[in-house]
């Protein structure tokens, strides 16, 4: 699977995870796969960053975890967005929008 992947922009991983989980509850691999698919392979999240981020967010109360059965009848830890996570996603998306707009203005100036 030869494809060129980029490093994530610093500090955006949590936002991307939140966005992914906002669509539906998912397990760790699901999150990683979804990010890779939607970004068309530009971003690949490895477990070494994914799981610490999930753990951090769980502690912060933005997501919570539940053991569920997968479609393949396996046990897996699913992550769900909490209310505060939804709030955080809104804030971070707005903030990201502001920053992108600003950067774009600078680049086009």
């Amino acid at each position: 699977m030869p494809s060129k992947s980029s490093d994530l922009v610093q500090g955006t991983l949590e936002m991307l995870i939140l966005k992914t989980l906002a669509l539906e509850p998912m397990h760790g691999f699901g999150v990683a796969l979804r990010i890779e698919q939607i970004s068309k392979g530009v971003f690949r999240v490895n477990p070494g960053s994914l799981f610490p981020a999930l753990s951090r967010m769980e502690r912060a109360g933005r997501i919570r975890a539940e053991w569920r059965t997968t479609e393949n009848n396996r046990r897996a830890k699913y992550y769900l967005l909490t209310d505060s996570g939804r709030e955080a996603l809104k804030d971070e998306t707005q903030e990201w929008g502001r920053q992108i707009a600003a950067i774009t203005r600078i680049l086009e100036a």
């Binding site: 397990h27 046990r75 897996a76």
Partner: peptide, 21 residues
């Protein structure tokens, strides 16, 4: 133990995805 299980599940899922490929 939970972390072990979660990581193993990740590994399995990852492998399944690759087998699908």
């Amino acid at each position: 133990l939970e972390m072990d299980e979660e990581l193993r599940a990740y590994l399995d899922a990852s492998a399944e995805e690759k087998m699908r490929g």
